[in-house]
């Protein structure tokens, strides 16, 4: 028991210090009834394969394509219950470029026809970005607070 607690502390601590781990992303979602927001933090490497500044034409193209794919396929990566008839719209895309590392930060707005709390969300991250191996998902939906580590296509989280 103690070992597990200790281990979890270490894991959390690493995450808390904003460790930049290739292949590992973080998604935070919050919903007030039918409205919501999705925040995505992913190492650039997991989306377009490199993290240096995209200077060459080829690199720029790769980056743009990946970001376009993220925008277009977001509702295939994060699948909300179809009966809620949700629409996910891009709000802010930012690439936080540091010397050797880059992190893509994206925000999406969600609007649905029914409240999201009580439904189920499934995740298909690798289907779109195979290099994204592990995603920590935190969800707040009205009174429900849940988290899930997504490692496989089809992993789902019930918001009950």
């Amino acid at each position: 028991m103690f070992k597990v607690l200790l281990l979890s502390t270490m894991v959390f601590a690493a995450r808390e210090h904003g460790a930049h781990l290739h292949g590992a992303g973080k998604i935070s979602m919050a919903f007030d009834g039918k409205r919501g927001k999705i925040e995505l933090h992913v190492p650039a490497e997991s989306l377009y394969g490199f993290e240096h500044e995209a200077k060459s034409k080829k690199d720029r193209q790769k980056k743009e394509q990946a970001l376009l794919k993220l925008e277009e396929k977001i509702s295939e990566m994060i699948v909300l219950d179809p009966s809620l008839k949700c629409e996910i719209k891009k709000e802010i895309f930012e690439v936080n470029q540091q010397k050797n590392h880059a992190e893509v930060e994206a925000e999406f707005g969600v609007s649905c026809e029914a409240p999201v709390a009580g439904s189920e969300i499934s995740f298909h991250m690798q289907k779109v970005f195979p290099r994204l191996r592990k995603v920590q998902v935190d969800v707040v939906a009205d009174g429900v607070q849940k988290s899930l580590q997504v490692t496989n296509n089809g992993d789902s989280l019930g918001l009950k």
Binding site: K37, K146, S147
Partner: peptide, 29 residues
């Protein structure tokens, strides 16, 4: 709830003092 995420970020990057804000249900699960 939507503001919670922003609020959490705001507190976690609070300049005057190193603070940590967590969503309890998320940490518990």
């Amino acid at each position: 709830r939507i503001e919670t995420l922003k609020l959490q970020r705001e507190i976690n990057t609070y300049k005057e003092e190193p603070l940590l804000a967590i969503i309890p249900g998320v940490t518990l699960s």
